[in-house]
Amino acid sequence: MTDDTGAADDTDAAAQWIDARTTFQRVYDTVLGATDHVPAGTVAERAQCSETAAREALTQLVEMGVAERRDGRPATYRRNDSYLTWKRVERLATETDVETLRSKLASLTETDREFQDRFDAPEPDAVTQSSLPVDDHEAVEERWTALSEWRTVRRDVRVLRRAVDRARRSPDEASA
């Protein structure tokens, strides 16, 4: 057995992940993908560790601001979206020059306007399902895809506005 060169060739992707990451790191990975509140037991199952270990890691991740906890029986956890958005804003403001951010923002704002015209609605959630064609499956799917893209555009507009503000406030930190 020559295990020191890494996992054997037949190990599956999950086994490779378990080999490569510590228990804490696996709980971190698991919680980053948790958009819904889940109990520590579910996190433990997904992270392939004991519930005690999962709870300890989760407590630490809550303190770090990565995860949020909701009291209950049992308590539940999910990722902290405001922390992740903040991180994305920081990354954009420090790694991209403000002119690039501004021109991206302008083109996204234009795309948002085009969607508003196309759907005759101020925002994607204001588009009523009843206005969808019922008999043409491809058309329905295409519209659903477009609405998802519109939601992504609006999210990006909010994030980029914050990134531009952030880059403007501290120009020395936020150089390209």
Binding site: G6, W17, L32, L84, R88, S148, R155
Partner: peptide, 24 residues
């Protein structure tokens, strides 16, 4: 059935990218 597809999940894409490159 009525749940619409949300915006792209940027943090999850980052997670998937960084973990995927560790796969052989």
């Amino acid at each position: 059935p009525e749940t619409a597809t949300g915006p792209l999940d940027e943090p999850t894409l980052r997670l998937l990218g960084t973990r995927a490159v560790e796969n052989r």
